[in-house]
Design a protein around this nucleic acid. Structure first.
Lengths: 363, 363
DNA sequence: CTGAAAGCGCTTACAG
DNA sequence: CTGAAAGCGCTTACAG
């Protein structure tokens, strides 16, 4: 950094009022064109890789000037002109402001981010509380800040169904994450087979001799959680085990301590449950803690299963039996499918991902 | 949704080529102006809340038309005109594409997101591998997609120092997250007092009689991790304990299993360490696992401390002694400070946050 | 208080 | 292959 430059942009700038201060000094196409001795049109052609429209000499000269001047096209201008922002929106519906507390969401986000980075696209993230008007939720895309939205809904099934209907009517490019069982006319979705994973998990417990198996999840829910509950129910039905409503609890939140507090109803049942399937690994941790607090050993007195295979699952004591969801891959796929759809003007194509059961020491 | 509408936007649209398809049918100011029988200028005034420039009747009439037509200003047009995007960029430097695997990053992100949501600003997130040119890292803000950047650096101190120097030269509105000890002329930063937390933690161990205390962190590092290491060192110095390089290990990654594998060198030392301080809670989990695998009991044979107080820390067995970082609050503050700075044209003001030690069963 | 006009920085037909 | 021009949708002096 030269002394002159430092002066020009440093403290001095702060002394000027907003009006006086020069606008962000960016190089424009016009300046590049002048410096390279070509038309703006030609610069645009170079920037957009239409090299067939000019001689190689021209192209390399312009490229060199672009490089030297540090020119980069103004995204707002491009956005205005092309009605395309080269940005995707990731929208999470969550009642908590800590909307990324669920590590699964972060996995999705990492996958989205990586895919978009490779394509030089932006990723705009936002969250809303379940229940707000869909227009507000979709603000980034309806308002023109993004070309499409990857949406992770949550809330009661009725609420989500209402959103789905409205979503179709609004007809913005979008793809759902983990919204299972949308019908043939519905919004495309990228889903993991939570139901199959849960079914496998429960069959495993049943075949190990468990007959009183509890299910605990937080009061707040979304599609994947419901699928997990269904797997539990289906396994019971196919095994001819009686389904008891007292065995299924929806209470607390998706934190271990919240789940520990909420698990009492289940753990203090008579006769005792011998296994508890949990909405995810965080809940499983809480149930394990509550069980230990009651002097129960795991898995001897109580088998516990989680879901999601979070980083900690393999390392806690005992290691958690759980199900892996390919969240990162799903995120990448969703970004890719949505971008392609935006380009083609088609509807994106959804896809199902398989899950994988990890049997560990907690069962 | 009416049948007509469904037809208009559904399958039929897909049959049209990109060129034929009408551009996103958005209402413009011009249309609002015509419908309300006023000038575009007036519509702009209404949109921007300059109600003093018109009669209340005019304002309410225009507002009503805006509502009815569902008009929303085009962000690209506003961005082009105002050289302001109403968007902030969150940039994470991480060698892994799973750049959000660290729950602490997610906390920062949640705080940023919530603050920006309340201000109707967008949040653009991106990640890069430590070592890439700063220009590339800052692409979102240099390239004009965002008004400023919240930056979370990582990598060796020398690399980060180089980035800091360049950052000053580039002079874009930005604020650092968890970049401790930047000098008086440096980029503003929002930091937690990791050093104090670590110092407290280590004093606690020393006062409990530990004399051979190991420190394990991943090979990849950032400022906060170094601060934690410093707290460890300082506590040793002030207690007159000898510092042995064999007790400090930097290996593996920030996953429990990676840390478990990397902890062998430390756990198999003779004479044995009686305590291990860890880079964060995930590492602590891994060390606990490795210790159990060796038949060591916690905290009897080995005391373990984590850092960050992740959700699982209080629920695992034994519960983890750790340090809370107010990540969410720090994220909110950073967004707020940066936005204010962008508005005023000043440099943002950094701030330090205090940490809180949680003594639990693992020590 | 309102209307007509310029211009932000691009892209894209349209002539040459 | 290149140049001159229109226009994307806003905001903002400038006259009235």
């Amino acid at each position: 950094m030269t002394e002159a430059r430092r002066k020009g942009v440093g403290r001095h700038a702060a002394a000027l009022s907003v009006a006086e201060r020069p606008r962000r000094l960016r190089v424009t196409m016009r300046e590049v064109a002048r410096a390279a001795g070509v038309s703006i049109q030609t610069v645009s052609n170079v920037v957009n890789g239409r090299s067939s429209h000019m001689t190689p000499e021209t192209e390399s000269r312009v490229s060199k000037v672009i490089e030297e001047l540090g020119f980069r096209p103004n995204p707002s201008a491009q956005g205005l002109r092309l009605a395309r922002t080269q940005t995707l929106s990731f929208i999470v519906l969550d009642p908590s402001p800590h909307f990324l507390a669920d590590p699964m969401t972060d996995l999705f986000l990492s996958g989205l981010g990586e895919e978009l980075r490779e394509r030089s696209c932006g990723l705009l993230i936002s969250s809303d509380i379940p229940g707000v008007p869909l227009q507000q939720i979709l603000e980034p895309v309806v308002g023109g800040r993004a070309d499409g939205a990857v949406i992770f809904l949550s809330g009661d099934p009725e609420l989500r169904q209402r959103y789905l209907v409205e979503l179709r009517a609004i007809d913005q490019p979008c793809i759902l994450l983990q919204e299972h069982g949308t019908g043939e006319n519905d919004i495309p979705a990228v889903c993991a087979d939570d139901r199959a994973g849960s079914l496998d998990l429960c069959r495993h417990l049943i075949s190990a001799g468990h007959e009183r198996i509890g299910f605990l999840t937080a009061s707040h829910s979304w599609s994947a959680i419901e699928e997990r509950m269904e797997g539990y129910l289906t396994a019971h039905l196919e095994a001819g085990l009686e389904l008891q409503s007292s065995l299924v609890r929806r209470a607390g939140d998706f934190t271990p301590l919240g789940a520990a507090a909420a698990s009492g109803d289940l753990l203090d049942l008579h006769p005792r449950v011998t296994a508890v399937m949990c909405g995810n690994d965080l809940i499983a941790l809480g149930v394990a803690k509550a069980a230990r607090d009651r002097g129960l050993s795991i898995p001897g007195d109580l088998a516990i299963t989680g879901f999601d295979n979070f980083d900690f699952a393999a390392a806690v004591d005992p290691p958690l039996t759980t199900v892996r969801i390919p969240g990162y891959e799903m995120g990448r796929y969703a970004a890719n499918a949505l971008l392609e759809a935006v380009d083609k003007g088609d509807a994106p194509v959804g896809r199902d991902f398989s899950t994988e059961v990890f049997l560990r020491g907690s069962t």
